[in-house]
Amino acid sequence: MGTALEIKDLFVEVDKKEILKGLSLNIEHGELAAIMGPNGAGKSTLASVLAGKEGYNVTKGSIKFLGKDLLKMSTEDRAAAGVFLAFQYPVEIPGVATSTFVRTALNAQKRNRGEAELDAMEFLKLAREKAKELKMSEEFFQRAVNVGFSGGEKKRAEVFQMSMLDPTLAILDETDSGLDIDALKIVAEGVNRLRDDKLSGIVITHYQRLLDYLQPDTIHILAEGRIIKTGDKSLALLLEEKGYQGIVEAN
């Protein structure tokens, strides 16, 4: 084991409003951590800060990823180092085929790491394999990125990208929102298939159901900009029973 991600006393402002207020969190190699919390607690802000989105101003604190200062790295360098954010609302990009997008991304990461790029045939072989695992038809390779995709297809496409890019830190930002039960199962199975002792994960969710499928190692409650409680599966059950308010008050 060993620490993959180390967030220390993180303060973040968005539009001069303080959202994260002293958040600390450690994630080990191979650990899957669930982050739960009420609306507006700063869950998506945490995801955006980790991925390097502009407009999020870190005023204090540090984030170390695999021993490196994550905050000093550009968005694309973080991706090449193994950070992957599955978007809550995947972005539509008309005019760019999904296969072109994923291949460009994969090869850009490989170039960044000084590895050999995949040629068209090697890429197609890999993509076919991964799509099959996610029960996706190959027809979607040619479709423009997320354009005209249903909610379930968009989330499945995110997991497809994740499996192609093979990250070391996956952040799933409400990947379960807008999914029906069958789609949720497929997405969860897809994520589970990727789990190994090298992949660390952060699952941001509101609901117990996704956690039933994913079985996270740790559960963290994020409220008022920091982690107020950490525990195992039983914490999620306690949450179901008492609600966020009950736990916030107890702490």
Binding site: A51, G52, K53, E54, S74, T75, E76, A79, A80, F84, L85, F87, P90, V91, I93, P94, G95, V96, T100, F101, V102, T104, A105, L106, A108, Q109, N112, A144, Q161, L165
Partner: peptide, 23 residues
């Protein structure tokens, strides 16, 4: 939003802009 999405997948900014203009 599109630029961030592309960059978050590891595509450098200049390349991401080209991809979008091309599209």
């Amino acid at each position: 939003e599109q630029l961030f999405y592309l960059r978050s997948r590891g595509i450098p900014e200049v390349e991401a802009r080209k991809l979008l203009v091309n599209a």
